[in-house]
C-alpha cells in the first residue's frame, strides 16, 4: 500500500499478523521484492514490513532528495505511520548501512539488527556503480547483477534482479550511493548496542566477506553466520537459510517493553 510521508509516497508491503514485527530495508535501488521470499516464510509468525525506499521501485523522488539522512527519516516515518512501536530491523547491502544509522539514531525502537551482505562504509568501491549508472545504466546493471549472483542455475534470479534495478532512474541509482560516498564516513560500530545477526556469503564479490567479519567483530553483541557458496543476495538465492538464521538468533525475544 502507498503511504504518504513528508509530502511523498512510499510503496510499502506488509504481510503477516505479528505480534512481532520485522522491518526490512532493501539495498541500492532494489525494491521491496528482494524480501518477498523470506517474508513468505516469516509471515506465519511475524508481521513482515518492507517498502520501496525513496528512489527505488514505485517510490521515485527527485534524485537530489536522496541522502542517508532522508532514507533514515523515511524509515522512522514508515514505522510511525504504520504504528510500529518497536521491531526487529533488517537490511541487505546498503540497506543494512541505513539500518545501522537508524539503530544509532534511536536504538530504543529496535529489538535487534539483521545485517545481510552489509558494509560499514560506502567508499570508493562504489565509484564504478556511481559513474556507470550515469554513463550506461543498463550495462552497469547487467554486470552488477552478474557479479551479485555467482550461484549456478540462477538465471531467473538474475533476470528478476535486473528488472528490479531497472525500475529506478539512473540518476537516482547514482545519488543513492554518491550521497553516502561523498560524506566519507565509516559507521562507529562499537556504538551499536543491539543484538545483531550478520549474514554474509563466501562468494560475495560486491561486499567481501571480510567486511561482514569486520562488522561482526566490532558490534559488541553480534553473531556472524557465513553462507558457503552464496553471493551478494542471500534473501533471493537462500531465503530458507536466511529465515532459519533469523529465527535461531532472535528466538528469545519475549514481547516488547
Amino acid at each position: 500500500m502507498f503511504i504518504e510521508v513528508k509530502g511523498h509516497r512510499l510503496n510499502t508491503a506488509s504481510f503477516g499478523p505479528g505480534p512481532r514485527t520485522f522491518l526490512a530495508h532493501g539495498g541500492w535501488v532494489a525494491n521491496w521484492e528482494v524480501w518477498q521470499q523470506p517474508f513468505e516464510l516469516m509471515s506465519k509468525t511475524w508481521r513482515c514490513v518492507t517498502y520501496d525506499h525513496r528512489g527505488s521501485g514505485e517510490s521515485p523522488v527527485p534524485p537530489h532528495e536522496i541522502s542517508p539522512e532522508l532514507l533514515v527519516d523515511d524509515l522512522f516515518a514508515v514505522m510511525d505511520t504504520m504504528g510500529i512501536e518497536r521491531c526487529l530491523l533488517g537490511g541487505e547491502s546498503s540497506g543494512g548501512f541505513i539500518a545501522l544509522l537508524a539503530a544509532l539514531r534511536s536504538p530504543e525502537r529496535f529489538e535487534g539488527l539483521v545485517l545481510i551482505a552489509t558494509m560499514p562504509a560506502i567508499n570508493e568501491t562504489a565509484k564504478p556503480l556511481i559513474d556507470g549508472s550515469r554513463t550506461d545504466y543498463r550495462e552497469t546493471i547487467r554486470w552488477f547483477v552478474e557479479a551479485c549472483v555467482p550461484e549456478p542455475d540462477s538465471e531467473h534470479i538474475k533476470r528478476w534482479g535486473r528488472n528490479i534495478l531497472l525500475r529506478a532512474e539512473p540518476e537516482a541509482a547514482a545519488r543513492m550511493l554518491e550521497s553516502a560516498y561523498e560524506r566519507e564516513f565509516e559507521i562507529a560500530l562499537g556504538n551499536i548496542s543491539l543484538p545483531t545477526l550478520v549474514i554474509h556469503g563466501t562468494e560475495d564479490t560486491i561486499v567481501p566477506l571480510k567486511l561482514g567479519q569486520q562488522i561482526a567483530d566490532a558490534i559488541p553483541d553480534a553473531e556472524l553466520v557465513v553462507f558457503e557458496g552464496t553471493g551478494h543476495v542471500p534473501t533471493m538465492t537462500r531465503p530458507h537459510e536466511v529465515v532459519a538464521a533469523i529465527e535461531r538468533r532472535f528466538r528469545e525475544i519475549v514481547g516488547f517493553s
Partner: peptide, 22 residues
C-alpha cells in the same frame, strides 16, 4: 565522537549527527 576523518566543521558535524541518537 570521532573528529579525525574530515577537514571542515561542516563535514565533521554532519558525520557526527548522522550517527548520533535522535
Amino acid at each position: 565522537a570521532d573528529v579525525t576523518q574530515h577537514d571542515s566543521m561542516a563535514s565533521i558535524s554532519e558525520a557526527l549527527m548522522i550517527q548520533a541518537p535522535e
